[in-house]
Design a protein around this nucleic acid. Structure first.
Lengths: 222, 222
DNA sequence: GGCCGCCTCCGACTTGGGTAGGAGACGAGA
DNA sequence: TCTCGTCTCCTACCCAAGTCGGAGGCGGCC
């Protein structure tokens, strides 16, 4: 069965270009076109396309919201975001909207076609230029950066630090660790001094900003 | 000038396979091989390869640490991580180690060659199967999930919330917004009541856990 | 043995955070 | 017009948080 494509773009030239480009391709068929987001959602519901080529900037409803609606109605659909710019915000929003991929209109034709086949097969795909940007951001996000001065903390202090970061009060920490609140206070003072922080609030901010406890969190979230 | 490749893998069969595979390619030349991480670092320093094909599981020094060292010595180098498994942890660590891409040994030969050319050109690349996984994780991470009760907050309260989350004290917030500290306290009390939180520490924890201010943070980090 | 780092605990104190309750000003909307 | 929500400010009070100085027990190390 061939890949059924819906092209959603507000410029008729672009739609015609894709229709032309894809007409020569074996196993790919453009089954519908849409000139705005609402039309895209409606036609997707009627035609059940395998892949939707979705522009972001469109009247009525932008491509991101249209993507959310189409996927809500048909989770099996694959949306490939098309845009002229490789702006960060689009990448983030498009991916969180559920898009399977992201290509630039500047990408060479064969790359666009390959992208369609890839997402139709169930894989995800990013244009190389976009991938680079995502990787950079991803690496930044995923990096469990070592906070300055953290090495100075003793084992016990680290333990208490984690509980502070979890939002516990001193008395709660004491109960948790079976030690007196006064002892907890002593540790807290040392922690703040070593990390050069003013209060526990800043300790929490530091911990999250530097993503100190990434690993534990990921486990806890499951 | 042709692309100079260093192949680092502990299995001689794999190295031979790559040498064979790449020998037929125009503009790609295997200039060195390494059987472990230390050797990879040493030979990279001597040969100055354009692209390093790096296995992860290797004796002496694993591919991740080797990647870090090579890039520390030569930031212009491009490291393409090779592995048999598409385990999450490898992807995260490899990317944060500075790798430009990630391909599976199972990927078809032409895809491997395309990957080498892509990263040599300065772009980044992930194998489609890997991309899917990264996108899912990325979308999850990037999602600015709306915390329950956040909608109840007024504009002013949200503003103050943001400053609390930044780690500011009440008096600092007052100075920032040109209002009295007592006023700030009033707002803080309302915020905590609406979000059903005990104190500002928990407010900070909530904000980061739900990643409320993703967008603002990204801007602030630059 | 003596020193040192760590963990534990205490009391007393200061300060910031949070609550309670009230009040005035202003604009939007019934 | 009157009400309602929002923002502003206040006093007074309580309590958690953090500081300071001191202290004892314990284990490792010279």
């Amino acid at each position: 069965m061939s890949i059924r494509v819906l092209v959603a773009d507000d410029q008729s030239m672009v739609r015609a270009g894709f229709r032309m480009l894809l007409s020569g391709e074996e196993g790919i068929e453009v089954v519908a076109e849409a000139r705005d987001g609402l039309e895209a959602v409606a036609k997707a519901a009627r035609c059940g396309p395998t892949v939707v080529l979705m522009d972001i900037r469109m009247p009525e409803l932008d491509g991101l919201e249209a993507t959310r609606r189409i996927l809500a109605a048909d989770p099996a659909a694959r949306v490939l975001i098309l845009t002229t710019f490789d702006l960060d915000e689009y990448v983030y929003e498009a991916l969180s909207a559920g898009a399977s991929g992201f290509v630039l209109k500047d990408d060479p034709p064969e790359q666009l076609i390959a992208a369609i086949r890839t997402v139709a097969a169930g894989d995800a795909l990013l244009s190389p230029a976009v991938t680079k940007r995502v990787i950079r951001q991803f690496a930044q996000v995923a990096r469990p950066e070592p906070p300055a001065g953290y090495g100075e903390l003793t084992e016990r202090e680290r333990e208490i630090f984690r509980l502070i970061v979890a939002g516990l009060s001193n008395s709660e920490i004491g109960a948790e660790l079976h030690i007196e609140e006064t002892t907890v206070k002593t540790h807290v003072t040392h922690i703040l001094q070593k990390l050069e922080l003013r209060d526990r609030v800043q300790a929490v901010v530091l911990a999250y900003r530097t993503r100190m406890f990434e690993a534990e969190e990921r486990q806890a979230d499951r």
